[in-house]
């Protein structure tokens, strides 16, 4: 489970969930450890996000979602029938904290300095 260890390595990570596309929990840790309640909320959210507006975003084309609170954010990314959810602590204002994995893997989480919105770059 190399991808779980990548999620764990993020410096500003405070919780993660790895779900199968049917909602089954494959892995979890930190604040989201064994958090079935949040997992169900995320699954329902993904279902809603599938068909927002076919004219703007084709149905099921949404590849990631970020949910940003004042001091933390949830970042959801869909890939290969799996759903990756990471809870990140926001960087202090004025500074940028990059949650980079050490081994140059293809999943990189970053914090945008100007907007304060955490984003996942794949």
């Amino acid at each position: 489970m190399a991808l779980i260890s990548n999620m764990e390595k993020l410096s500003n990570q405070i919780g993660y969930l790895l779900l199968q596309d049917d909602g089954a929990v494959i892995g979890s840790g930190g604040d989201l450890e064994n958090d079935e309640r949040s997992a169900n909320i995320f699954m329902e959210l993904l279902h809603l996000a599938e068909s927002v507006d076919d004219n703007f975003m084709p149905n099921s084309s949404c590849e990631r979602i970020s949910i940003v609170y004042d001091d933390h954010s949830y970042n959801i990314s869909m890939s290969n029938h799996r759903i990756y959810i990471v809870k990140l602590k926001n960087a202090p204002r004025g500074g940028t904290v990059y949650g980079l994995t050490n081994n140059g893997s293809n999943v990189v989480f970053s914090e945008s300095e100007t907007s304060g919105v955490a984003s996942i770059l794949t």
Binding site: S38, I41, E44, L45, L48, A49, V52, M57, P58, S61, C62, E63, R64, I65, S66, I67, V68, Y69, D70, S73, Y74, V117, S119
Partner: peptide
């Protein structure tokens, strides 16, 4: 969508949600 996300942490102010495509 906004109501659904608010269930995550009902005690906090509603977050900003961003869908990317």
């Amino acid at each position: 969508i906004s109501e659904q996300v608010c269930k995550l942490e009902p005690n906090l102010n509603p977050p900003t949600i961003c869908l990317y495509s």
